[in-house]
């Protein structure tokens, strides 16, 4: 565990807290993509299947991971539930039109082609890694359709982007200090994902500076 990893996890938790607070205080979920939130719920449910066979008391790190995994699964399901019930009337359903099968399909194919071991759990795990890399796309699509990024949605995406960037630094750190630590699959997917955020922030900052509506290519 290094400083980048823990800071990355904390920004990930912060992003979720920002989203929940925004919905609670403004009593609406305008500008939030339900599709992205459902993809994240799917990412966590498929990533953390190991919860079923891991003893959380094995080590302090396992304990920490177990708590975080349960936190991510439960909060992502809670967000989806809230958006589908309490805040349903404020959800921009028509604008949230990204076709999710275009993300799930390729992620499934990639997982069948690239995985670490030939077991169902490993293929499902690889699927979650690939899906996470692109799960933000419906959210970016929605932002570009509405053309405006509310501050709070910007903060949410910023916290998520910080999480990705810090994880990348964590990998650099570990590759340097832990001999034999190589995670090609996670790294490739992670770099793609970090690139998506970097691209978003480039356009976000540019549109803010020029006071124009956000346009993503």
């Amino acid at each position: 565990m290094n400083i980048f990893r823990i800071a990355g996890d904390m920004s990930h938790v912060a992003s979720i807290a920002i989203l929940l607070l925004k919905m609670k205080t403004s009593r609406n979920c305008a500008g939030v993509s339900l599709k992205t939130q459902e993809l994240y719920a799917l990412v966590f449910l498929t990533r953390y299947v190991d919860l079923l066979f891991t003893n959380p008391l094995r080590s302090p790190l396992t304990m920490y991971n177990t708590i975080m995994k349960i936190l991510f699964i439960s909060t992502s399901l809670y967000i989806v539930y809230q958006m589908r019930t309490r805040y349903k009337h404020t959800y921009n359903e028509a604008a949230d039109a990204f076709r999710v099968p275009f993300l799930i399909g390729p992620a499934a194919v990639a997982a069948l082609l690239f995985h670490l071991k030939n077991t169902v759990v490993e293929v499902v795990w690889a699927f979650s890694i690939f899906l996470e890399a692109v799960a933000i796309m419906p959210q970016l699509f929605l932002l570009q359709k509405t053309g405006e990024v509310e501050n709070i949605t910007g903060h949410y995406i910023f916290a998520l982007g910080a999480y990705r960037g810090l994880y990348a630094l964590n990998w650099v750190w570990r590759a340097f200090w832990e001999p034999g630590y190589r995670q090609w699959l996670t790294w490739t997917a992670g770099i793609v994902q970090t690139g998506l955020y970097a691209d978003f922030f480039y356009h976000y900052i540019r549109s803010k500076r020029q006071g124009k509506k956000l346009k993503l290519p």
Binding site: D9, H12, T54, Y167, Y181
Partner: peptide
């Protein structure tokens, strides 16, 4: 179980 130690990230 030792193999899973590699997957110690979230």
């Amino acid at each position: 179980d030792a193999e899973d130690d590699k997957k110690d990230e979230l």
